[in-house]
Design a protein around this nucleic acid. Sequence first.
RNA 1: GCUCCCGUAGCUCAGCUGGAUAGAGCAACAGCCUUCUAAGCUGUGGGUCGCAGGUUCGAGUCCUGCCGGGGGCGCCA
Length: 679
Amino acid sequence: MDAEMALTLLQIQTSLREKLASLSNDLFGVVPEIIAVETPPKTEFGDLAFPVAFELAKKIKKATGEKRNPREIAETLKAEIEKEDFIEKVDVAGAGYLNIFVDRASFLPQNSGDAVVGGLASAPADAPKVCVEHTSVNPNKAAHIGHVRNSVLGDTFQRILGSTGKRVEVQNYIDNTGVQVADVVVGFIYLEKMGLGDIKALDEKLIAEGRSFDYYCWDLYARVGQEYQINDDLKSKRAKILHAIEEGGNATAELADYVATRNVECIIATMERLGIRYDLLPRESEILHLHFWDRAFDQMKQLGVIRYESEGNHAGCWVMPFDSHEGTDDHENDKILVRSNGTVTYTGKDIAYQMWKLGILGLDFNYRLFHTYPDGKDVWMTAGPQAASLQEANIPSFGGGETIYNVIDTRQSYPQEVVKKGVAAISPERGEKASVHLSYEMVALSPAAAEELGFELSEDDRKRTFIEMSGRKGLGVKADDLIDRLEEKALAEVESRHAGAADDEKHHIAHQIAVGALRYFLLKFTRNTVIVFDFAEALSFEGETGCFCQYSAVRANSIFRKFAEAGGKMENVASAIDNVDAVGQVFSADDGDDIWSLAVLAARIEDSVRQSAAANEPAILAKYTFNLAKAFNLFYHRHKILSEPDETKRAVLLTVANMARISLTRSLELLGINVPERM
RNA sequence: GCUCCCGUAGCUCAGCUGGAUAGAGCAACAGCCUUCUAAGCUGUGGGUCGCAGGUUCGAGUCCUGCCGGGGGCGCCA
C-alpha cells in the first residue's frame, strides 16, 4: 500500500472542505466562513454530510438577491466532488444535503491496524508547551468525590491535549499556607493539645493500625468547624496561627508544613490509584517567600493596570479596575488585590502565580524532587529560598506555557475572570486566550446519599434536590472509600467468573474495573452538569459505564487471541483485504452497511478527540467511547467472525474488529481507563 | 437587587458552530447462553424539548419576556 496515498477520515474531511470552499468561490462567487461537516444519522445516508448548499443559498441571496434552490446548488457541487478518487459516490439528500460515501474497499486497507489512530500522536520535544493545573485539594484532609471530578477531568483533558500533539505539564497547586490548613493546625494544637512530636507519633500509630493521616485530619477538620460555631475563643486563634504559617521559620509553621505535606502525600497516593499523576507541585509558601507577589505588584504598578484608592469604600487598597463583571450595586466592581492593612488577597497571589505559569513574571521557583512513581516518573515540588544553593543539576524546566488551563469549579469563575483579565492587561500580546478556566459544576449528594453516609437531615434538606458536600462539616464521599467499595464489588464479580485465577490477577482486574467505573462515571456528564451523587449509579457496572466499554474491548481482544491460537496470521488478513473487488463485494452485500458502520465509527476517533479538545470537553470523548463499545457489541453478536467461511469476508470482519479494538483501547486510554486481560 | 448556568421520556443525562424521523442509560415488559466471555444482545411501551412570543427556507439549539431550580456577587479562600 502506498503510504502517501493513505488518507484518514479526518484528512478526507479536510480535503473536501478545502475543495468545497474553492468550488464555492469558482462556481458561485461566494465563500462560507466555515464549511460545516456533520455525521449523517444513518449509514445509509453516507459517511460525511455537508449542509453547505443551504449556506451558499443564503450567501448568494445576500450578495446578488438571486434566490437559488439549495438542491440545485448541491447537484452542481456533487458533480465536481464525485471526481475525487477516495469517493464512492455523492448523494444529494433532503432539502440539499451533500452526502459523501467514502470508497470502502480502498479506505479499509489504508486505515486498518494502528493506522486507524494514526492521526493521534504524542508531542515532539520541541512542540509548544501547555500547562494544566488540576486537583489542588487543600492539604488539610482526604480528597472527596468532588475533588476527584476535578482531577479526573484535568487528567483526561491533559491526556487528550497530549494526543493532539501538545507538550503538557501537569501542576497540582498546594495551598499549604491557607486558612484550611490553619484550621486543622488549630485542631491539633488546641483541641488535641499536640505538638509536632505528638503528631509524628500519631502518624506512625495510624499507619500501624492501617488508618490514614488524611482521614484523621478529615474528622479533625470537621470537629474544628463544629467547635468554631460555639467557641469564639478558638476561632480567634485562627488568625494568629495563619499568620505564623504564612510567615514561616517558626514552630507553628514547621508543624503546619508536616501536616500539609503528609496530606499531600495521601492525596497523591489516592490519585495514583486512579492513574492520575503530576509533574509539579507548586506551593503557596514559595509564592510568598520567593516574593512572587512583589514582582507582580511592581509590574502592575508600572503598567498602570492597578490603582491605589485614596478615598471611598476601598480607601487604602490597591484595586484592579474591573467594570464588566456581575456585582452588587453596594460594592464597586473593582477587585481588591492589596488590602488597606497591606496584606495581599488570594486573587492577588493567584495573578502572580498565573504570570509565572505564562512565563511573564521574571522569577522562578527553586525545586526539589518530591516523589518518584514506581515506573520512574518524577514529581517535583517547589522549594523555598534556602534551597537555591542546592538546586539539583537536572531539574526540568517548569512553567512558561503557551496556554494555561486551570481546572477549577464554576463557583470560582469570578476570581478566575479577574486573574485572566489581570494577566491579559499585563501581557496584552498574549491576551485573555492564554488563560483558560476549565470550569465544571460541583458533585453534590442526593439527600438519600447523605443519609446513607449517616448524616441527619433537616426537613428542609430532605426536600432539596441535592446537598452540597462540605469539608468543614465532614460531609462527603471520600475518594478512597468509594474506590474501595468499587474494588470490593468488582472483585466479587471477578471471583464469580474466574474463580480459578490467581489472587493477584483477580485483584488487579478488580482494580482496573473500579478505576474504569469511577472515571467513566465522572466523565460521562458534561462539565456544566451538577452531578448529584448516587451510590447505586456510581457503583453500577451495567449500561453506560466504564465497565461496559472495557468488557467490549476484552471481548474483541479475545477474538484475536483465539485467532492467533488457531494459527491465524494478520499478514494474511492484510493481503486478503487488498483485493479491492472482493472487499467491495463484501461491503455491497446485505450486511455490508452494517460492517462498514463499525469501521467508519472506529475511524472517527481522531475527529472525536479533536472536538473534545476544541470544546475543552472530555465528555465528548467519553460518549464516543461508549458508542464505539456499543457498536462493537452489536457487531460481535451479529457476525460470527472466526467461523466465517468466506475468506475475504472473514478478513474484512477481522480487519474491522481490529480497527474497533485499537480505537476503543486508545480512547479508553485517553480517558485513563485500562483494558483488563479478561473480565 | 445585579449576574451566570440549568429546565429534553417515569428517573439520570446526550444532542457537535441552527439542519434529515429529538437519542442513550436506568427502571418496566417480552425474548436470546451445546456457537469468538450473557458485566452482553434483540424487541415493546414511554416526548406539547418549562411557558409565551419573535428571527429563519428550517429552532431542543439564536433573540425577548415570564415561570421554576442552582451558583456567584467579601478588605474569605
